[in-house]
């Protein structure tokens, strides 16, 4: 079957994706036959109890973990069969990650962290600084450019991580429990920020979360239970 061309392709498309971890105690099926399509510009939450396979699914979509079976397309490009180098390039061009533990590079300042993917892409300094300054201004980070991550609050670190994820203008931002370490105020303002980026830059966001606040703000809620999709609802918040 012909795949849709990159431009009109959905940001994510999976077809009967499985992930089975081989363990000494036996096989652990973490994701069991997930087929889902996420269009460009969506603001989608993958919800489900702990251990339901959210992280595993997200990692497969981002090319960090290989699927055991099935097909995954990101911007119309099939990940199955890509080499490690091709997967790295795909992440660099198409995917931004946000993690529960922020995961900024501890030795780089906020600005340097945020511009790192742009450096890897070979974007000129002036262009880099312009883009990051603009995003910092938009997200209330102006003035914190030179701080090391250790000197930022959790909420600030996560904002820098989000800026880092969107700066390279990826087709897709994958955020795994982005608010799990944040208090309510910080969570809300982070969500405000991501909503705004989603609206104004039409960046696609996919969250893995069991945080009610995130689910409430999402416009589509996919529920996973034991590695399978239990429900998939488009919501009108």
């Amino acid at each position: 079957m012909m795949e849709p061309s990159e431009k009109e392709a959905p940001a994510v498309h999976t077809r009967d994706v499985w992930k089975i971890f081989e363990q000494e105690a036996g096989e652990v099926p973490a994701v069991r036959g997930v087929s889902v399509s996420i269009a460009r510009g969506e603001f989608t939450a993958l919800a489900g109890p702990s251990g339901s396979g959210k992280t595993t699914l997200l990692n497969m979509i981002g090319g960090l973990t290989r699927a055991t079976r099935g097909q995954i397309f990101v911007s119309g490009r099939e990940l199955t069969g890509m080499s490690a180098v091709e997967l790295a390039r795909l992440r660099l061009q198409e995917v931004g990650f946000v993690f529960q533990a922020y995961n900024l590079l501890p030795v780089l300042s906020a600005m340097e962290n945020a511009e790192f993917p742009l450096l890897l892409q070979g974007v000129e300094e002036s262009e880099r600084r312009a883009r990051i300054s603009e995003l910092f201004a938009r997200t209330g980070l102006t003035g914190l450019e030179d701080r090391l991550p250790g000197k930022l609050s959790g909420g600030q670190q996560q904002r820098v991580a989000v800026v880092r994820a969107v700066a390279a203008r990826p087709a897709l931002v994958l955020a795994d429990e982005p608010t799990a370490n944040l208090d309510t105020a910080a969570s809300e303002s982070l969500l405000d920020m991501m909503e705004e980026l989603n609206r104004e830059l039409s960046t696609t966001f996919v969250f893995a979360t069991h945080d009610r606040r995130v689910m409430d703000r999402s416009r589509r809620l996919v529920r996973l239970v034991d590695g399978e999709i239990e429900s998939d609802d488009v919501r009108t918040p």
Binding site: A84, A88, R89, L92, F99, Q121
Partner: peptide, 16 residues
């Protein structure tokens, strides 16, 4: 370990 994981998530190849 985690830092190298981050670098690869950001688009570095294992070789890099």
């Amino acid at each position: 370990y985690r830092e190298f994981g981050v670098l690869q998530a950001l688009g570095l190849t294992p070789r890099q």
